[in-house]
Amino acid sequence: MSTIEKIQEEVLVEEAVGANHEIVLHNDDVNTFDHVINTLVRVCKHDDLQAEQCALLVHYKGKCTVKTGSIEELMPQCSALLDAGLSAELI
């Protein structure tokens, strides 16, 4: 005779209200890694490691989501990235 165990997991789902937009950074042949990293730290409040990882993803994959949040929060950050000469879009 075998014993069948039933495991019930409680899964919490948190709806991300207002955090459904993202800033996507695109690769370019103009900006240095240092400039991209420093700009992500300054504008998006990334730590050094996170900014470096994003810069590498952009370089090797062509793009990377660097920030998510509400449209009101992201608009000035995306503008600051663009003002710094980076290729970014808000989606």
Rank of each mutant, 00 (worst) to 15 (best):
A84E: 06
Q8N: 13
L57Q: 15
D83Y: 07
A55F: 09
L12W: 09
I91D: 13
L56C: 09
A55C: 15
I23H: 01
N31R: 04
G18E: 05
T32D: 02
F33R: 05
V36W: 01
T39C: 09
E15V: 14
D29N: 13
N27G: 05
E9A: 09
V13P: 02
T32P: 03
S79Q: 11
T39S: 14
A51R: 03
N20M: 08
A84S: 10
D28M: 03
K6T: 11
K67E: 12
V11L: 15
F33N: 03
I91N: 14
A80I: 03
A16H: 04
C78W: 00
L49W: 13
V66M: 03
L90P: 02
N27W: 11
S79M: 07
K63I: 02
Q53C: 06
Q8C: 06
A88I: 00
S2V: 09
E72R: 02
M75Y: 11
K63G: 01
T3N: 06
Q77Y: 03
V11K: 15
L40T: 01
V41I: 15
A80V: 04
L86H: 02
D34G: 12
I91C: 13
A55K: 06
A80C: 07
T68V: 12
I37G: 01
Q50N: 12
V13I: 15
C64H: 03
S79T: 08
I37P: 00
D28E: 05
I23L: 07
L40F: 05
L81Y: 00
A19W: 06
N27Q: 10
K63W: 04
E89C: 12
D34S: 14
Q53I: 09
L25W: 04
V24G: 01
L81T: 01
G69Q: 02
V17H: 09
Q8A: 12
V11H: 14
L12V: 14
V41Y: 07
G69K: 03
P76C: 00
L56F: 13
D48R: 14
A19H: 10
A51S: 13
G69S: 03
V11F: 14
L49D: 12
A80K: 09
D83C: 06
K6S: 10
T65G: 08
T68Q: 10
V13Y: 08
T65R: 08
V13Q: 11
Y60P: 04
A88K: 00
H35K: 11
C78F: 01
E10F: 11
K61Q: 12
K63L: 04
L86N: 01
D83F: 06
H59Q: 09
Y60D: 11
